[in-house]
Design a protein around this nucleic acid. Structure first.
Lengths: 301, 301
DNA sequence: GAATTTCCATTCTTTTTGGTTATCGATCGA
DNA sequence: TCGATCGATAACCAAAAAGAATGGAAATTC
């Protein structure tokens, strides 16, 4: 009861003529003849009355025809589904995004959606550290995280980012200032450590290496709030330069330079996970990743 | 995507060990190895992670496992149904019975039901002539009809029957009479011609051959009524000897003998119709047919 | 840490299967 | 009666599938 035999049978049942059916199947007439004979031998009954005017289905043949059609269709369907899944054109993909990728995310996602419309995407916004944990737990397929990452993960770089000093445009104490060194007396707003450990740590290291300790007067739970506080003149802040995107007109961003100011954000996934979904997403990401650092911002808007 | 490959796959997916699965499948381990590789090549993705502890399903493998199990089960189911149908162990059979087979019918039917419980039987009670027409029209599979039948039909003999004179036990005019010759003045009840042409014609021929013309004073639509009328003393009747079965105590049956008194009833079907259902029924009928004439009835009860 | 065991993959050979061409036999029409 | 059509059969061939033996990696044992 191989699919091949059933398929031949269904075609013959449609044509009711060995020659034509064989041609449609791409085999010779004797081959089809034998296939049908095999099926009949397997069942122990005849499927066609062979007459002058071609073949005619017996009652058994009629019964088998209906069933065989279903089975063949199911088999074809299964093959197609399997191939699509193997090719990563179907399935579910869970992605983690963080602060630094809020710029590239929409573009990547729409591109992916366009090319793989049958892949179900799940997005979650969370800091790098959380993403890495979820990746380890298998609850996340790909995370957009700060590089480098431990060798548990494979990754590709996606965007360059860099620290920037955010200053209120209006505040008197900030007027005319243009660098970290001028901020010794300035009040600072800082992102809560648990909401962005990577960024906060890097900023603190950067400052420490320059014998500067920001006078933190307030912490905020997310970067938008930080920017708002800066815009309101509450204080300065050290933020990713890519936060430019969410900086209002009341905030001036001054890129910080030198050792420790830059880092990369990459797409990371569990090492060795060769799921085609992941590979497809990564391939597309590689194609469209911002290879150059964010287009050298002209400091302020 | 042959069933063979899918079956091997499902078995391996259950054992998760090539050696055991191969054994269960009755093939060598390398053979199974190659089968899985074929499937994987066909799909374009791996189905198992091969590790130290045997094999482990990939996501693709898990998906395919569920689907393949269904497909294989469907295929097996189809094969079984097909075989059962080819063997005539499943299907629908329409039978026609007439007067003369009301005796054997119940036994045959219960035997057939017992041996082929999944064959749906349809019974219809009608005279031979009607049965033959329905057989020709394909609306009846087997008819129990008076023999002989035209060569359009194949048949086997089932029961012998013979004409009998039915006399009322009580009626004065019938008392002491024991033969047709003594009935010249007797009133006769006769079956309506359209309800049993074969019997009526045969009875008339039998009488005519003996220069006897029954004085028919009443006709009845079915043989039970005929018997009742006889029992009521309305008249005599010529009936099949097998009608003994439905004769009440008020009726005396006297077998008629000589040329033209006997006939056979057989199971008939369209010539060349080798439907296994028919063949099975006929085979069973042949096994259990009453080969001897109805056990020489001792005339009266 | 070397030997052993366990598993799956590979190689090579044999067998089986599926297919092709050529041909036959039967049946129906002209 | 002669073709024409249609399926079955025969003979042969190539490809596929299976088996036996072997290899190689990884874990386990002593």
């Amino acid at each position: 009861m191989e699919i091949r035999l059933l398929r031949s049978f269904t075609v013959l049942a449609r044509y009711l003529n060995y020659g034509e059916a064989a041609q449609a199947l791409g085999v010779s007439q004797p081959a089809l003849s034998k296939q049908i004979q095999l099926l009949e031998a397997d069942l122990g009954g005849v499927l066609f009355h062979r007459g002058r005017h071609g073949a005619e289905l017996t009652p058994l043949g009629r019964f088998m025809h209906g069933q065989a059609q279903k089975l063949v269709a199911d088999a074809d369907q299964l093959q197609q589904s399997g191939r699509r899944m193997a090719a990563g054109r179907i399935g579910r993909l869970t992605l983690g995004f963080g602060l630094s990728t809020q710029e590239v995310a929409p573009r990547l996602l729409s591109l992916f959606r366009e090319r793989y419309p049958d892949v179900e995407l799940t997005l979650e916004d969370m800091p790098s550290a959380v993403q890495l944990n979820l990746l380890r737990a298998g609850e996340l397929d790909i995370g957009f995280v700060r590089l480098p990452v431990s060798h548990e993960f494979d990754w590709i770089a996606v965007v360059d980012d860099q620290l920037a000093l955010a200053l209120p445009v209006e505040a008197s104490w900030a007027r005319g200032k243009a660098g970290l060194t001028a901020m010794h007396d300035a009040p600072f707003v800082q992102l809560a450590h648990h909401r962005g450990a990577g960024l906060v740590d890097q900023a603190m290291r950067y400052c420490a290496a320059r014998q500067f300790t920001p006078h933190v007067i307030q912490r905020a739970g997310d970067i938008q709030t930080v920017m708002s506080l800066v815009a309101a003149g509450i204080g300065a802040a050290i933020v990713p330069l890519t936060a430019q995107r969410i900086a209002g007109p009341g905030v001036r961003l001054i890129p910080l330079t030198g050792r420790g100011a830059h880092w990369q954000v990459g797409a990371a996934w569990l090492a060795g996970n060769d799921s085609p979904l992941i590979q497809n997403f990564v391939a597309l990401t590689r194609e469209h990743s911002v290879r150059d650092p964010a287009p050298a911002p002209t400091v302020t808007a």
